[in-house]
């Protein structure tokens, strides 16, 4: 047993998993509130990465350089992703709030296809090299054989983001309103919660998380493309289901489990079938424990 290899894979898996977790949170929050798989969530992630790429590209080519680029690019990406998420909800989902369940799902698939092709048409269908924005950290020393400095940034940012999200949901007014809406939309409305605003806020928060994930993973893999959102979206959804959809700690756990399982599968069995492990895990979980790892089985009433 090669422990160094094992540890390398574990680190890679955790880094990958924490990104899945970031995107999965958006799915899970939206699903918890309006029971909709937001298929276009992966596209929001892709748009976030693209905006960051454009901002970083313009800044580097016009002569700016230095540490400020990454935070600035990430900030603008987050703003734009939030705007796209908000608009998406208003156009594609809000008119269908009371429609049969298949309708918003199909609308979501349509929105996803639309956004993917929109970026492909106005930008490019080719892969673009994402600039290296994270400097090499000297203090890592020997640790670099397991983790690059990008990985450290990813872990730090995701941890901070998740703590911030927990605080937001547990202690703020909007967080309270979100939890109330999740439990019972009608009752929440009766006690004076503006449900429409809560739903918009949920989409915005989810999109912000997705954009952060997009920027981080783009700086790790070093390339982006208009189609990256699709796979990432599916994987993140898998992570959300794995942990129990609608359950926020579940999404984080699901993301980590998925990331580690995938990296181990790719590392020990075959890297060509990486995606197959993710889907296989999804199918297995749904068959054995349809409510997910942390989810509670809900009995359906008639």
């Amino acid at each position: 047993m090669d422990f160094q290899y094992l540890f390398e894979l574990l680190c890679g898996g955790v880094v990958k998993g924490s990104i899945y977790a970031l995107i999965a949170l958006g799915y899970t929050m939206v699903y918890g509130i309006i029971q909709l798989i937001n298929f276009a969530h992966g596209e929001i992630y892709m748009i976030g990465a693209f905006v960051a790429f454009i901002v970083a590209g313009v800044l580097t080519l016009t002569g700016y350089s230095g540490l400020g680029i990454l935070p600035l690019a990430a900030l603008i990406a987050v703003i734009y992703a939030a705007a796209y998420g908000y608009t998406l909800e208003k156009i594609a989902y809000r008119p269908l709030r009371n429609a049969p369940r298949l309708s918003p799902l199909i609308s979501a698939i349509g929105a996803s296809i639309f956004l993917m092709n929109y970026v492909q048409l106005v930008q490019t269908p080719d892969f673009l090299p994402f600039p290296e924005l994270v400097p090499d950290f000297e203090f890592l020393g020997d640790l670099t054989q397991f983790m690059s400095s990008v990985d450290v940034v990813i872990l730090a940012v995701t941890t901070v983001t998740m703590i911030a999200l927990t605080v937001l949901i547990k202690y703020t007014r909007i967080g309270k309103a979100m939890r109330a809406t999740q439990q019972d939309m009608v009752m929440a409305r009766l006690v004076g919660v503006n449900v429409d605003r809560v739903i918009s806020a949920t989409f915005i928060i989810g999109s912000v998380l997705a954009a952060i994930g997009g920027v981080l993973i783009a700086s790790r893999t070093g390339q982006i493309n208009s189609a990256i959102g699709f796979m990432a979206g599916i994987k993140a959804f898998t992570a959300a289901v794995l942990g129990g959809i609608g359950n926020i700690p579940g999404a984080v756990l699901g993301g980590l489990v998925l990331g580690v399982a995938e990296t181990f599968g790719a590392g020990y069995i075959s890297s060509a079938y990486e995606d197959v492990f993710a889907f296989g895990l999804l199918v297995l979980i749904l068959i054995l424990r349809p409510a997910g790892l942390l989810g509670k089985a809900v009995k359906q009433k008639v």
Partner: peptide, 27 residues
Amino acid sequence: PILRLRGDYLAIVTLGFGSITKIVLEN
């Protein structure tokens, strides 16, 4: 295996099966 699943879950699992088929064909 997916008899018990409803609506959204069913959609995502069938999507997974579709993707697995393509990956297997490719590799």
